[in-house]
């Protein structure tokens, strides 16, 4: 098990710090975190995983989206201390070993589904989460309210757009992102 010190200036756990363990991209990390630290900052500052981006720091843009225990979440709003024992997947952990890309990463390249790239890790993590939600039968705002609960929701373009609306893209790559997501729908 790797042990990291969250902040070089802070000592052992005290009233304002706690020791936690996070499993990040399959690797366990034991860290002493400032209670004020959100998951996004722990990933970026302490674990040097800068794939998750800080676009707004307030849950208003989705650039920080990662998977927490398999579900997509805005990492900028999650106090790290509250995630002790959690399993985190970031964009860096999506591919296989070595050079292998996740199919959605490949689809983003094929469809030119990004320009500046800053929202991209969040879009990809969010889409992976959204696909799982649809497979689990979760409805969205545009799902027919009369549809039966339970079976997977088929994702047409309106469904993809609605489900990814928590991820802003200022470059306007939306149509290409939707095509990329369509490419990996089973």
């Amino acid at each position: 098990m790797e042990t990291d010190t969250a902040h070089p200036t802070t000592g052992p756990p005290d009233h304002h710090h706690s020791e936690i363990t996070l499993r990040v991209n399959g690797k366990p990390h034991t860290l002493t975190v400032d209670h004020r630290s959100v998951l996004l900052d722990v990933l970026r500052e302490d674990l040097d995983l800068t794939g998750a981006k800080k676009g707004c720091d307030h849950g208003q843009c989705g650039a920080c989206t990662v998977l927490v225990d398999g579900r997509r979440a805005n990492s900028c709003l999650l106090p790290a201390v509250a995630l002790d024992g959690g399993d985190i997947t970031t964009v860096e952990g999506l591919g296989g070993d070595g050079e292998e890309l996740h199919p959605l990463q490949r689809a983003f390249l094929d469809r030119d589904a990004f320009q500046c790239g800053y929202c991209t890790p969040g879009q990809i993590c969010s889409a992976i989460g959204a696909l799982a939600e649809a497979a689990a039968g979760h409805p969205s705002h545009v799902t027919d309210p009369g549809a039966p609960a339970g079976p997977p929701v088929a994702l047409d373009r309106a469904e993809i757009r609605e489900r990814l609306s928590g991820n802003l893209c200022r470059c306007g790559a939306y149509p290409n992102i939707v095509e990329a997501v369509e490419d990996v729908i089973p």
Binding site: R72, A73, N74, S126, G129, P139, T143, P145, A149, G166
Partner: peptide, 27 residues
């Protein structure tokens, strides 16, 4: 997404889905 909520209280499911974003609703 809860089947009983969707079935018996669709207004609640609809209101929730009209708010925030997928990842915020997960939290």
């Amino acid at each position: 997404a809860h089947p009983l909520v969707r079935d018996r209280y669709p207004v609640l499911s609809q209101a929730l889905l009209a708010g925030a974003s997928g990842q915020l609703r997960n939290i």
